[in-house]
Simulated assay, not measured.
Amino acid sequence: MSKYLVNKFLYTVDRDPALVERYREDPRATVAWWEAARAGALLGCAGGEDSTWTRFEDAEREALATHDHPALFALGAHPFLTLTLFIALFERDHEGLGYQKQYAERLAHFALPYPDIAT
């Protein structure tokens, strides 16, 4: 698992309002674009340089493309990064703390020890 790359995706998308909207409206295309166009540059790869560190694994790509935060958590994505991005994506669709409660409910089946979030 390339947890660092997944966390980098979550972090960089969350900090760009246009990318947040793009990811909300067309997550699969946004993930594919980011992986192809931004991953290598953000990780310091020179032009034409390639590494498995600049590509998501299939499970990561699918979880990102379907906004599946429980799957991302199980894969080791940092929960604060998923929470902040997913609040930006979906809080507007819920009243009060409705989205945060839904987010927590979908993670309630996890028990200690939680998945390792170290990168």
Rank of each mutant, 00 (worst) to 15 (best):
E25S: 14
V13W: 07
S2M: 02
G44N: 08
F9P: 00
L97E: 15
S2G: 01
R92Q: 07
G76R: 00
S51Y: 07
T82W: 06
A104T: 08
T119N: 13
A111Q: 10
F80Y: 05
L107W: 01
A74P: 00
I117D: 15
A46C: 13
A41Y: 11
L75V: 01
A74K: 01
L75S: 01
D93H: 04
W53K: 10
L85W: 07
A36W: 04
I117Y: 11
T66R: 06
S51I: 09
Y4W: 13
E62V: 09
G47W: 04
A88P: 00
A65S: 14
V6I: 15
A63W: 04
A41R: 14
L81M: 14
A29Y: 12
A18M: 08
R61D: 05
H109P: 00
T119P: 10
R38G: 01
G96Q: 07
R55P: 06
A32T: 08
L83Y: 06
A59R: 04
E49R: 01
P113W: 10
G98A: 09
L75N: 01
Q100C: 15
P113T: 06
L81S: 13
A108V: 04
L85K: 03
V20D: 09
F86I: 03
P79I: 07
T52C: 14
G44P: 06
M1T: 02
D26V: 07
A37L: 10
D26K: 09
Y99E: 06
R28I: 13
R15M: 11
A71Y: 02
A65E: 08
L81R: 10
V31N: 05
K101N: 11
V13K: 01
L85Y: 08
H109S: 08
L89F: 07
A77L: 03
S51G: 10
A63V: 08
E49H: 02
T30L: 08
A36R: 07
E60I: 03
A63L: 11
T54R: 07
Y23W: 09
R15I: 02
Y103E: 02
F90M: 09
Y11L: 14
W33C: 15
L10K: 00
D16H: 10
Y99L: 06
L42F: 15
L43W: 01
D14A: 11
A18Y: 13
W34V: 06
H69K: 04
C45N: 06
L81Q: 12
G48C: 05
F56S: 02
K3N: 05
C45F: 13
E91A: 07
T54V: 14
D14P: 01
K101F: 06
